[in-house]
């Protein structure tokens, strides 16, 4: 994986004005995405994954939203780019598959037309050509009877069918970067496997760089090259698939890995969960954002935010935790994180 860097995110922040003040949804993220790689973005619900991905192409600009930092794509900064310029990038160079298909699709337009419209927005093709390509795309994402389905309205489709329509729209113009926000949550595992094969094919044949936002760590294990874990608006651990999943360094990541309900092994009566609630308000503690829930927190954790840097583990492995190597090993043992 040594492709050229396609997208370089530096110090990205996204804040939302809420009654209590400004909510730091994304609180300073640095991330680079290389050609032909699949980067999995995982993390707590509400940690800023969707806010981050939408801000890359200016989709959450608006009153009450404040976006800072830089998103560099082919020498341009998309954070400061004008709306016109962004419209040229969106859906063509960088496509986003949204998490909420019911909110993102137009309820009054047939789905085939919605896919075709995305094609025609960026290409000089006839209406007929776009329509045929739209049907083809619907077939590729595993929708049965695509010609018929193209004539349906969003509410006439099941949740998973709508999700695949979103993926078809995302793929419509062979984007260089595909950001897929929970693209397979509404799909059964056999269709999910088909969609994942489609994504890995794009990656290997077209060199598409993919940011895959997902809660399914099994999916991450199957397709990701690298993994970034978010907590409260920041990346708290990042590394290769093997580093993060099989040698986790941050207690939040360890907690996630121990909470996965499995289809094999003994069935447990109670799933291990990380106690306490995630941060939802505007206030952030001074030190490590995970300290209020971390079973291993001590005074040093509350003093200041640990920087994201390499501490232990593999060469590409970085994290934000002050624990030393021995404490980390004990933590993995205490949480019964599955041995690799």
């Amino acid at each position: 994986m040594s492709g050229e860097t396609l997208l370089e995110i530096r110090g990205l922040t996204v804040g939302f004005d809420v009654p209590a003040g400004r909510l730091p949804a994304v609180a300073g993220v640095d991330l680079s995405l290389r050609r032909g790689e699949i980067l999995a973005l995982v993390g707590e619900s509400g940690s800023g994954k969707s806010a981050l991905s939408m801000s890359l192409v200016g989709l959450n600009r608006g009153p009450g939203a404040h976006i800072g930092g830089e998103v560099l794509f082919h020498g341009r900064d998309l954070v400061t780019a004008g709306e016109r310029e962004l419209r040229g990038v969106r859906g063509k160079d960088i496509a986003v598959v949204f998490q909420d298909s019911l909110a993102a699709l137009n309820p009054t337009q047939r789905i085939g037309d919605q896919v075709a419209e995305m094609i025609r927005a960026h290409r000089k093709v006839t209406r007929g050509q776009a329509g045929r390509r739209a049907e083809e795309l619907l077939g590729e994402v595993g929708i049965a009877g695509p010609a018929q389905a193209a004539r349906a309205y969003p509410h006439q489709l099941s949740g998973g069918m709508r999700q695949r329509v979103m993926i078809a729209i995302g793929l419509a113009n062979d984007p260089a970067v595909l950001i897929a926000d929970e693209p397979t949550t509404a799909l059964d595992v056999t269709i999910q496997a088909q969609v994942l094969r489609l994504l890995t094919k794009l990656q290997s044949e077209h060199g598409t760089a993919i940011v895959l936002i997902t809660h399914d760590l099994g999916v991450v294990a199957e397709v990701a090259d690298r993994v970034a874990v978010m907590y409260a608006g920041r990346i708290i651990e990042q590394g290769t698939r093997d580093e993060v999943l099989f040698d986790p360094q941050h207690p939040y990541t360890m907690g996630l890995l121990s909470s996965v309900p499995r289809v094999d092994g003994p069935a447990v009566a109670r799933l291990p969960a990380i106690a306490g609630n995630p941060l939802t308000g505007v206030a952030r503690p001074a030190g490590c954002a995970f300290a209020p829930r971390c079973p291993f927190a001590h005074d040093a954790c509350r003093a200041e935010m640990p920087p994201l840097r390499r501490r232990y583990g593999g060469t590409a492995h970085v994290d934000r935790c002050v624990l030393d190597d021995a404490a980390r090993t004990r933590a993995r043992g205490a949480l019964e994180v599955l041995a690799p």
């Binding site: 619900s45 940690s47 929970e182 809660h215 909470s259 309900p261 990380i274």
Partner: peptide, 20 residues
């Protein structure tokens, strides 16, 4: 209907335990 599909596994575990 898919009540925990959008939750990270830790919050998911909390919600499942609550339902249990």
């Amino acid at each position: 209907d898919e009540p925990v599909s959008a939750l990270d596994v830790s919050i998911q575990a909390q919600v499942i335990n609550l339902l249990a």
